[in-house]
Simulated assay, not measured.
Amino acid sequence: MAGRDLQVFLAFFVSSLLVLPKARGNSEGDALYAFRRSLSDPDNVLQSWDPSLVNPCTWFHITCNQDNQVTRVDLGNSNLSGHLVPELGKLEHLQYLELYKNNIQGQIPAELGNLKNLISLDLYNNNISGTIPSSLGNLKSLVFLRVNDNKLNGPIPRALASISSLKVVDVSNNNLCGTIPTTGPFERIPLNNFENNPRLEGPELQGLASYDTNCL
């Protein structure tokens, strides 16, 4: 009986070791590591991003709250290239996503609209293309939206006009088209924050949006 009990114990111990990495897994760490895998990092600024840790709160350029939930990603001016990933939308407690002045390409994932606590989205000075997702209109805590100096096209989503907290919008130096919204927070945004979009027309008249006409 003793030998059989030992075998049972060893089998249980080994199986516990096999499931341990999954038990220690962290969805925010998984999301950030998926982002890391999409990036080229010649200066090794992400070398501390170790997916085997319980959570990413000890990683450089990551800030967490007292509950070990990620609230900031600070990777501005870090010589990174690559693209954004949908998994970033799983960082449900994120307040600041700072990725400015890199060489990030590709599109803005619609999943960023899931970041309900986001205050600042800084993607300026990259090579991001595609459209500005209308899902960003779901970011009801957003104050700063800076996507200037990229290669974005299409219209300015009217959903952004419903974000009452929005104070700063800068979409200058892209290839946007259509008209500039005039309602909600856009009443206070200076026109130079829309400049150097050759296909973008002036403010829409009486709230009538013509942005969907020949605007692709």
Rank of each mutant, 00 (worst) to 15 (best):
D5R: 14
L6F: 14
L6E: 14
L10K: 09
F12D: 15
F13K: 12
V19S: 08
K22L: 14
A23P: 01
A23V: 11
G25V: 07
D30Y: 12
D30K: 11
A31D: 03
L32R: 00
Y33K: 01
A34N: 08
A34I: 08
R36M: 06
R36F: 09
L39V: 07
N44F: 11
D50V: 07
D50F: 08
D50I: 08
S52G: 11
W59F: 10
W59S: 00
F60Q: 15
I62N: 00
I62S: 00
C64K: 01
N65K: 01
N65I: 01
Q66L: 10
Q69E: 12
V73G: 00
L75T: 03
S78K: 14
L80V: 08
S81P: 04
H83T: 13
L84C: 03
V85E: 04
L91H: 01
L94I: 05
Q95C: 06
L97W: 03
N102G: 04
I104H: 04
I104E: 03
I104D: 00
Q107V: 13
P109Q: 06
P109C: 05
P109A: 04
N117A: 10
L121C: 07
N127H: 14
S129N: 15
I132M: 05
I132Y: 05
I132L: 10
P133N: 09
S135H: 11
G137V: 06
G137I: 04
K140D: 08
K140V: 12
S141G: 11
L142Q: 03
L145Y: 02
N150R: 07
K151D: 10
L152A: 05
N153F: 13
G154M: 01
I156N: 01
R158D: 09
L160N: 03
S165V: 06
V168T: 11
V168D: 09
V168H: 10
D170H: 04
N173Q: 13
N173F: 09
L176N: 01
L176S: 04
G178L: 02
G184E: 05
F186N: 03
E187L: 10
R188W: 06
I189Q: 01
P190V: 09
N192D: 12
N193W: 05
F194C: 08
N197G: 09
N197P: 07
R199C: 10
L200A: 05
E201A: 15
E204D: 07
Q206V: 11
L208F: 12
S210L: 14
